[in-house]
């Protein structure tokens, strides 16, 4: 009974205090605010501890969600981005390759327009089937008008001559093959000779007159005496002149002008002369005669 009376007293006291607080708030608002702030300072500090703890847990959960659970989609997105990068890299590579191809084609076209000869562009599709000949296979054949003995060049210079053809492809014997022979002339001294390949992958100008003053560095060009090439196409530069005692002629080693290991496109000289049509007819007549029994 005593407890009940005490509780009743406390309640009355609380109500009275609350009423006083309300009256104070209404009648003295600024002073009561200051008082509340004064009381709220320590309370806020007390509250801040659990608040920080909860906040930390909340952040932890959010981080865990974003870092692990929500990364399922990010992982997929990452993979997609990687795929995109790979695709773009490939595309970029293709574009670079196309750009270099366009530059090569431009050079070929420019050479083709300037050259007095009739030429046919062809792509290198393979190398000789054996290790014994320095040859390459082109994607143009008899159906495109390619015949044996036609010259093959690039804007840089002479590549070789066609030795075999079938309907869709042809085989070119390179200028560095020992079985090849092209009539050449030293540009500075006008001395003529025969350019043959060597076993070392270079070429050699043979039958240079003994009294000739050729020297290393001289450029050798086609003389135009043989049917395959017009006059003046670069073959290479002399790197060493050899003159043995008792020999009737000098000979000189030539570094070919064209890098024959890195050829992608070439031009086949279908008619090397200015009067190309007449030459073409002549060639056709020759081949026609050969085919006749």
């Amino acid at each position: 009974m005593a407890i009940s009376r005490s509780t009743y007293g406390t309640r009355r006291l609380a109500i009275v205090l609350f009423a006083c607080l309300l009256v104070a708030l209404f009648l003295l608002p600024s002073q009561s605010q200051r008082l509340l702030q004064y009381v709220g300072g320590p309370l806020g500090q007390v509250l801040s501890l659990p608040l920080a703890a909860f906040s930390s847990v909340d952040h932890g959960i959010t981080d865990m969600w974003n870092g692990y659970v929500a990364l399922q989609s990010v992982h997929e997105e990452n993979r997609q981005l990687h795929r995109d990068i790979e695709f773009l890299k490939g595309q970029n590579n293709q574009l670079r390759e196309s750009m270099t191809a366009v530059q090569r084609y431009e050079a070929l076209l420019s050479f083709k327009q300037q050259s007095p000869s009739q030429t046919l562009a062809a792509q290198v599709i393979g190398r000789d089937a054996t290790n014994w000949y320095r040859g390459m296979i082109l994607n143009k054949g008899e159906s495109d008008g390619v015949r044996t003995e036609m010259g093959v060049v690039t804007p840089a210079g002479v590549v070789g001559r066609v030795v075999k053809t079938n309907s869709t492809s042809s085989v070119v014997l390179l200028v560095t093959d020992p079985n090849n022979a092209i009539a050449g002339v030293v540009q500075r001294t006008r001395d003529e000779g025969i350019v043959e390949g060597t076993s070392h992958g270079r070429a050699r100008l043979k039958y240079i007159p003994l009294l000739s003053r050729v020297q290393a560095g001289d450029r050798v060009v086609t003389s135009g005496l043989t049917g395959a090439f017009p006059r003046g196409l670069a073959i290479g530069s002399l790197i060493q002149v050899e003159k043995s005692e008792g020999d009737l002629f000098q000979s000189a080693e030539i570094e070919p002008e064209v890098d024959l290991s890195k050829l992608d496109e070439v031009l086949i000289i279908t008619a090397p002369y200015e009067d190309a049509e007449a030459a073409q007819k002549l060639l056709q007549a020759i081949h026609g005669d050969r085919k006749k029994p």
């Binding site: 054996t130 000949y133 079938n166």
Partner: peptide, 9 residues
């Protein structure tokens, strides 16, 4: 036969 077709020899 095929190799001969694609060789300069």
């Amino acid at each position: 036969c095929f190799q001969d077709m694609l060789s300069a020899g």
